[in-house]
Design a protein around this nucleic acid. Sequence first.
DNA 1: CTGCGTGCAAATGGTTTGCACTACG
DNA 2: CGTAGTGCAAACCATTTGCACGCAG
Lengths: 147, 147
Amino acid sequence: MNTADAIEKIKQKGLRVTPQRVAVFQTVWELNNHPTAEDIIRNIRKSHPSISVGTVYKVLDTLVASQLLEKVKTDKGTMRYDPILSDHHHLYCKVTDRIVDYEDPELDKMLEAFFSKKKIENFAISDIKLEITGTFKTKAHGKQKNG
Amino acid sequence: MNTADAIEKIKQKGLRVTPQRVAVFQTVWELNNHPTAEDIIRNIRKSHPSISVGTVYKVLDTLVASQLLEKVKTDKGTMRYDPILSDHHHLYCKVTDRIVDYEDPELDKMLEAFFSKKKIENFAISDIKLEITGTFKTKAHGKQKNG
DNA sequence: CTGCGTGCAAATGGTTTGCACTACG
DNA sequence: CGTAGTGCAAACCATTTGCACGCAG
């Protein structure tokens, strides 16, 4: 995502546009591996050496609250961040700890159909996310397409 | 779960049976709301006033490693613990932060059928968990049955 | 007996907070 | 200009760790 687009997206949400917000937002897009706050800080400092840890956390909270990013929870108890594209699920790799987005409209449609027929007692569903654990079959040559 | 059963389960896993392990295991069963470590410590001290924080965490790790309990991650970054019964999914209440188990063999069967037909490229699935977010419809009188 | 498990307290590490300063709008 | 955002460093808090002692097997 280029700078102009990042600015536009932030502005659309009614947020003040600051260099830090733009940088954090772009960095999460660049690091397409669901980075931790630490990953983000390390990378962002290449272009913004003086950005502070506290600011990054505050910016991340702001962007999450404005639905420009989402938090992904991990087994390790550290949060990771994900640019919001559209509804998607997550593939968790047991071996490499990689988290990969998984979009599947057909799956979503099936789930929706299932739960509109079969209600959960006393519970109103607002969202369903699949957490698919497993392992990537690494090919000899090159990286994952999904990664 | 009574003490004899708890001892038996722990023994079955080849673990040393200690009063602390038995107490932690029973406490997680009693607190059927997916307690945090803090919840567990607070409650366990009613019967074992001198158990230490470090021990509780170590025991929880041990029991998780032996598959007597499982860790449930939360948005807040704190872990919660769940006695392992069988495969189940989780209902997350947006309003009360309650986490409730959801078992549904029919759903599991449907998912299995779906993913045996439609493979995910380069990924071998070992487990699928649904994270169903929403709100409980509280009845005027009394608590949730599921709670 | 012998080593694994426990208690304690200090350390860790990710995240948060308070405050003076800066700059977006 | 005024207020929301930033930088900094200290504080926080769940969890981990190291070590001496105790108890399960």
